[in-house]
Every structure is written in C-alpha cells, then in structure tokens.
Nucleic acid binder design. Sequence first.
RNA 1: GCGGGUGUAGCUCAGUCGGUUAGAGCGCUAGAUUGUGGAUCUAGAGGUCGGGGGUUCAAUUCCCCUCACUCGCCCCA
Length: 415
Amino acid sequence: MAKIQSVRGTHDIVGAAAAGHRNVVEVARNCAHRYAFGDIDTPIFEFTPVFARTMGEGSDVVRKEMYTFTDRGGEDITLRPEFTAGICRAFISGGMQQDLPLKFFAHGPAFRYERPQKGRLRQFHQIDAEILGVKEPGADIEIIALGAEILHDLGVLDRCVLDLNTLGDHDSRQAYREALVTYFSDHRDRLSEDSVDRLDRNPLRILDSKDEGDRAIINDAPLMADYLNPASQDFFATVCEGLNVLGIACNLNQRLVRGLDYYTHTAFEFVTDALGAQGAVIAGGRYDGLIEMLGGPATPGIGWAGGIERLAMLALHMPQPDRPIALVPLGITAEPMALRLCHALRRDGFMVDMGFRGDISRRLKRANKLNARAALILGDDEIAKGMITLRDLDDGSQQDVALDAVAAHLRKLVT
RNA sequence: GCGGGUGUAGCUCAGUCGGUUAGAGCGCUAGAUUGUGGAUCUAGAGGUCGGGGGUUCAAUUCCCCUCACUCGCCCCA
C-alpha cells in the first residue's frame, strides 16, 4: 500500500466516462426542463437528523451505511445518501410553502458506506426529480412520464421495464402490513433466516426476497390489491390510466415495496437485466408523510432518483464529441501571431487546441490524437505570404487562406 | 456484515509444477521523414510481479494477514 490510491468505492471519472456521465446529466436536465422542472442544488451534507429522522434512528441504514462525522464545531453531519430528504429540508427551511406546487430537478454525488459491487459505489451520482405539493395522481403520472422520457432520450428505454405498484394510503398500507405479518408468522418456521429477521424489522421486504424457499411462501401471501380501500384503488387506477394514455408500458408488480412508513400510493422502478444484481436505473415513489416527519407543514410529494453510473453503462452510444481545430505555430516569429489568432478564434466560438511545444510532426501527431478536424499551420513561409496553411486532417488537402478569412473557412468544416 | 474470483509494464493479459537477466500485444519515446498527422518498418524507455509477514539455501510462484478490484448475498433512503 505504498502507492497512494483512491478511497474504496470511489472512482475518477475521466475521458469517455466523463463524457458518458455528462451526457446522462444533460439529457436528463434538458428533458426535465421541457417538463417545466426547475433546478435545485442542495448541499452535499446536512445535519444528520435530516436523513436519520426519516429512516429511523436505529435502522441499519442509519447506523452503518451513512457517512456520518462530527465536524470541528461539534456538529453531527452526514454526507447526503440521497436527494429527497435534502430537497424537502430546503423546502421547509426556505419557506417555499407559498410557492407550491414545486417541481425540482437535481443531480450530483451521493454517498453510502456499502460494500462496492457492480453499479454500486460509495460515492456515486444521481439525477433526481421531485414534485412537491400535489396530492393528485397527475403528479405520479408526470414524474413517471419524465423518467420514461429521459430513458427514451438516452436510447435505453427499450432495455428497461417499468415495474409499478401501489402501497395505498396510510390506512390501506397498515392493514396490509398486519395481514402480511399474520401470514408470514404462520409460516415462520419455513422462512429463511433473513426473512425471519425481516418479519420483525421490515415485513414488506420479505416480498422481494431472493431465497427459493421464501418464494414459494410468498406466492400464496396476501396481495396488496386486496387491502386497498376504495380511495386508494381509485388513485391507482387513475395513475395506470394516465400511463396508458401516454403509451407507457408497465408491469404491475405486487412485490415491489418500500420499507418506510412515509411512503404511500405509487411505487415504481425502471429496471434492466443488463447490469447484474443492481438492476434499478430509476426508482421512486410517493412520500406524502415525509415533509411532515421532517417538521414541515403536511405536504405531499413524489419523486425518483436515477443512478448516473448505471444509466451511463446502459447508454452505450453517445453523441460524437465536438472536434477541435489544431493551431500549429512554427518558429518564434509565429508564436505571438498564433497566440493572438488562437484567442480570436476561441472568442469566435471555435474549439482550438494549440500545443505548447514540439516541431510540426509532433504537433500534427497530437492534433490527430485529439481527433482535430483541421490544422492551421503558421510558419515563416506563411508569414512571408501573409497567409496561413489550412490542412484538412480528414482528407489531407491543404490550402493557403488569408488570416482574416480563417474563421469563414473553419465554419464550413466544423458545422 | 457474509461468501466466491482476481491483483504481473501506462492499458489488456501470458508465464514461473519455487532456481541466474519476468514476456507479448496495444500505448509511449526516438529514428526512417531536419515544414506535415493517420499506415509501415527499426530501435528504445518503462516492472520493488498490490503491500506486510512466514516457510525455504532461494518466493513473483507455497502459507498467513492486509489493501484494492470484481461477482453474488445482506441492505437499499
């Protein structure tokens, strides 16, 4: 370990990975803006209770999976493990109640102290969308539609399936939970060790157990649909109808659950089988109880988060990066002239790279490596003529161009 | 937190049933081409064989520990 290395579960995002990353963010943001979502950027750390209160102080997640530390002032701080809680805190502390409804788009890093595996890092990156203050199912429809549209724009929608479920309102959910506990308690002796554990801690999670033996028991478990009160049924029906109107295919998955009490009604995940065990690329749901739990005015909310790394892995095809122009000065007379021209072209909007050293051969090699569209060569010969050599690096043709006509010529090459 | 796999050049990987100077391809540098990139040819640089400890006359190779990556479980806000 003599060599210095990055912290476990962190990655440097460079080159093609950086381009893929940025592509996901830009596509998502463009899309969100078309849906009239505004940008929000909250701090990447918050007072620990912002996250801990909503999760339950004693939960595994809070105790073992957050980056929590005491800062120099003695404050209990946590790096954000997700976006929703911070955005809700911003909503509360910014006094935005009077601006409801609000639609937010955010992106950036998040942190979880977990064992890294494919599609799961300790510092990872998310895109995030939230709608606050809308109790109607229209918000559910819009937030899901936005997710689907982003996947479409990234060219990955056809490799994803939308899993959809409802947890019903608070009462429905409670009734179902009790029914599940009763049912699974009767089969306690046949459940896997993990699921026996879940029975006390988080019974809904038994439903997505991967254990073979559990599966058989789960097949005969009570279904959420049978415990929905009429209002919850209507709500969900409206959501499904809206998706149908928009032509968004979905798979009703009664095993799709959320563990925490503030979740109500719609839960959804866009999943893929192309990424191994971490298959959810965009996941979210309605959290009507969350803001109140954080000490704010009772305000409904719904949102989702999407993993940028996972989306970038899926979105293999990327828009071709812009190609630069290489400026090649030869000799000390040319240097200051080239410097001036370089500046002028850049101000004019061209992407220009001028090497810092080397002869013409070396500089053209670099131009080639940068995938430059053309090279501008300025040496004594050109200076004597009052021209500059414009070399097309795709076909190798060259022509002399007057200095004041360079921009016009380049514009034809770089569309 | 639990289990499997893997760590050898900048990258992708061979290899050593323990034995002098550890290999390839790609990449890099230089030259063929002193004002012309890509292709080709030639030469060169680049490795404490992830780190620490143990066994041994001798360890990159065997053993233990550790770190990291990777696949799955757990968890999933």
